[in-house]
Simulated scan of single mutants.
Amino acid sequence: MNSPYTWIPVLLAVILSAVGSELDYDGWLRLRVWHALNKGPMPNFIERGNITVTSVRSGASTVAQAGLKSSELDELRKLAEDDREYRLKASVRGSSGTETTFFTSVPACLVLGSELEDFLTVWLDGAAEPVAVSLSSYGPCSREVPSTQMWTTEVQVRYPEAGPVPDTATYIQKLEREREARERGETKDNRSFLAKYWMYIVPAVIFVLLSSATNPEAGGAGGGGGGAQR
Rank of each mutant, 00 (worst) to 15 (best):
L175Q: 09
K89Y: 11
R179L: 04
G139F: 08
V155A: 05
A90D: 09
E72V: 00
V157G: 06
M150Q: 13
V106K: 03
V155S: 08
D167A: 04
E129R: 10
E183R: 11
Q149E: 15
T168Y: 02
R84T: 15
S147T: 10
L112Y: 08
Y171T: 10
V131A: 04
Q173K: 12
L135W: 10
A80P: 00
S105N: 10
L135K: 06
L120N: 07
G163Y: 02
P107G: 12
L135S: 08
S147E: 11
L112G: 03
T98P: 00
K78C: 00
F103H: 05
S91Q: 13
D167R: 04
R143S: 14
E75N: 12
T101P: 02
Q173H: 11
E183Y: 09
C109N: 15
E180W: 07
R143G: 14
L175Y: 01
G126H: 05
Y86F: 00
E129H: 02
R77G: 02
R84M: 15
V155D: 08
T148P: 12
K78Y: 01
P146S: 07
V145S: 00
E81M: 11
P146C: 07
D118H: 08
T98A: 03
F119Y: 08
P140F: 03
Y138G: 03
I172P: 07
S142H: 01
E115L: 05
Y86E: 00
L135V: 08
K78S: 06
P146V: 06
P164Q: 14
T101F: 14
Y171C: 01
K89I: 11
E180I: 13
A128R: 13
F103M: 04
S134M: 05
T121L: 08
E180R: 13
G163F: 03
R158I: 02
S105L: 11
V157S: 07
S105R: 13
T152M: 13
S105G: 07
A169H: 01
S142T: 02
R84D: 15
P107N: 12
F119S: 01
T153Y: 04
T148S: 15
A162P: 07
K78A: 03
L175P: 01
K78N: 09
A90T: 12
R177H: 06
S142F: 02
Y138A: 10
A128Y: 01
C109M: 10
Y159E: 07
D82F: 02
E161A: 10
R158W: 08
E85V: 15
V106Y: 01
D74R: 14
A128Q: 11
L88V: 15
T148I: 14
G163V: 06
L135G: 10
T187H: 10
L120I: 11
E115V: 06
P140T: 09
F102P: 11
W151Q: 05
A108M: 14
E176N: 10
P140K: 12
T152E: 14
G113K: 00
E129F: 02
R182F: 07
D125C: 05
P130S: 04
L120S: 07
E154H: 13
T170H: 07
C109R: 13
R77P: 11
E115R: 14
Q149D: 15
L124Y: 03
E176S: 05
G94V: 01
E85D: 15
R84L: 15
E144P: 06
D125H: 03
R84H: 15
K174Q: 14
F102V: 11
Y138R: 12
C109W: 09
S137Q: 09
S134P: 01
F103Y: 13
S91L: 08
V122A: 13
L120G: 06
M150V: 10
